[in-house]
């Protein structure tokens, strides 16, 4: 089930804007059990120099992974989603995501390869705000495990 190599370098059009809400950030912060007031209290966030509450560093993944989902689900690529685990994840931030942001994601396939029967896919998601300024880039490595299950990784 080798992946289609011609997908390397392919970029997908920017997603429709995702509007970041204060209550969504609160819900996410509660789900990771993180009481940092910068996530829920606008005054605390302002004391740190942010115009509104900010999102935890990994929050952006919820947006970029949804965008990457369009890539993953592309039947021409041939990825077996039922066997996909998360290999690596990296973020580079120009600034934190914050309430009121309207964010778009542009996904690019960086790597497609097969290793020891596993299919490996690297997707880069560039996140920009409404004014076109860069906010964060997320790199996601997905591994579709070979039918003989490996112990490594998770999603």
């Amino acid at each position: 089930m080798a992946l289609d190599q011609s997908f390397v370098g392919r970029s997908y059009p920017p997603t429709p804007a995702y509007e970041v809400g204060r209550e969504k950030i609160r819900e996410f912060a509660e789900a990771i059990g993180d009481p940092n007031p910068a996530y829920t209290d606008p005054e605390a966030a302002k004391a740190f120099g942010h115009p509104d509450v900010i999102a935890p560093p990994t929050f952006a993944f919820a947006i970029t992974y949804k965008a990457a989902g369009l890539v993953i689900a592309d039947p021409e690529l041939g990825l077996d989603y039922s066997r996909v685990v998360h290999g690596d994840q990296k973020f580079a931030y120009t600034r934190p995501v914050r309430a009121g942001d309207r964010l778009t994601v542009t996904s690019t396939i960086e790597t497609v390869k097969s290793l020891a029967g596993n299919d490996i896919l690297d997707v880069r998601g560039e996140v920009h705000d409404e004014s076109g300024e860069h906010v964060v880039t997320a790199w996601t490595k997905l591994v579709a495990r070979a039918a003989d299950p490996a112990q490594d990784g998770d999603v």
Partner: peptide, 14 residues
């Protein structure tokens, strides 16, 4: 939390 400029991990075991 806005002081974090770069963050990456490898998921080695579940």
């Amino acid at each position: 939390p806005g002081a974090v400029v770069d963050y990456g991990v490898r998921f080695t075991k579940p």
